[in-house]
């Protein structure tokens, strides 16, 4: 890893984002240190995905600065493709390329973007498939894999680009409950190896165990942040408490109390 002036992997300042008249992010300031694992929690529609997507510029911020590993991505002159290579992203819906095998999903960007030769790309790809426990699925097409396997291939695909940080947007929300564990296990091992991770999740036990810091968002602002013990264990704000009560015991929610239970 290159030494950075302040050791920050992600730095967000005064971030605003509107879709037409709808203001989704209303002034976000926060940062992620190198090697840190930060979990973002919050009710549906609070802007968690939008925040994540502003970090790699899949959404264009309306105002504010976003800096990733020392490069300001909101600079109009930035080579965004070059920055995105350094940021791995994992989507809720996996978004594997269905016309390519698992192995080809991992090699295509290595070859077309990084210019690696076939042999090197395949070697890297196989190592990463092995790492997520799918060494035997190299030749399988996404449609032949379970949701949990697809998500692990998607993680391996992002890792194949040797990213400096990883963004996860509810990586287990689309999975059957019995498949969630395998994906979380891969993420846990990544965190152990020192990967910088920004994770939007509803898996509170994962957040408690793995996160260095938990950020609670509601209504387009950060309501509170701190260690998992603070935010999940002893929340200071009423909105955080109400949200956690719903997430930790969904059956207890009353009709009308919450518009959407995650």
């Amino acid at each position: 890893m290159k030494p950075e002036q302040d050791g920050k992997a992600i730095d967000v300042q005064g971030l605003h984002k509107s879709f037409g008249a709808l203001e989704v992010l209303r002034g976000i300031d926060f940062s992620v240190a190198r090697g840190e694992v930060v979990c973002v929690i919050g009710p549906s529609g609070s802007g968690k995905s939008t925040l994540l997507r502003c970090v790699n510029l899949l959404e264009e911020p309306s105002a504010g600065r976003v800096t990733v590993a020392g490069t300001e991505v909101t600079d109009p002159d930035v080579d965004i493709d070059r920055v995105r290579r350094r940021i791995g992203m994992v989507f809720q819906a996996f978004n594997l390329f269905p016309h390519l095998t698992a192995l080809e999903n991992l090699t295509i960007a290595q070859r077309r973007v990084l210019g690696r030769g076939r042999a090197e790309a395949e070697r890297t790809a196989r190592a990463h498939l092995e790492r997520v426990g799918l060494g035997d699925k190299a030749a399988a097409y996404p449609a032949q894999l379970s949701g949990g396997q697809q998500q692990r291939v998607a993680i391996a695909r992002a890792l194949s680009m040797d990213p400096e940080l990883m963004l996860f947007d509810e990586p287990t929300s689309a999975l059957d409950p019995e498949l969630v564990g395998d994906v979380l296990a891969v993420m846990r091992s990544l965190a152990r190896d020192g990967m910088t991770m920004l994770v939007v999740t509803h898996e509170m036990s994962f957040a408690r165990e793995v996160a260095d810091r938990v950020v609670f968002m509601d209504g387009g602002v950060i309501v509170e942040e701190g260690t998992p013990e603070q935010v999940v264990g002893a929340p200071r704000h009423e909105r955080t408490r109400a949200f956690l009560a719903r997430v930790l015991d969904p059956a207890a929610a009353e009709v009308g109390e919450a518009d959407e239970v995650p």
Partner: peptide
């Protein structure tokens, strides 16, 4: 699906 373009762009493809 739009996610295909997004996944490709997030891997650094133009």
């Amino acid at each position: 699906p739009k996610g295909q373009m997004e996944a490709a762009r997030s891997l650094g493809m133009s």
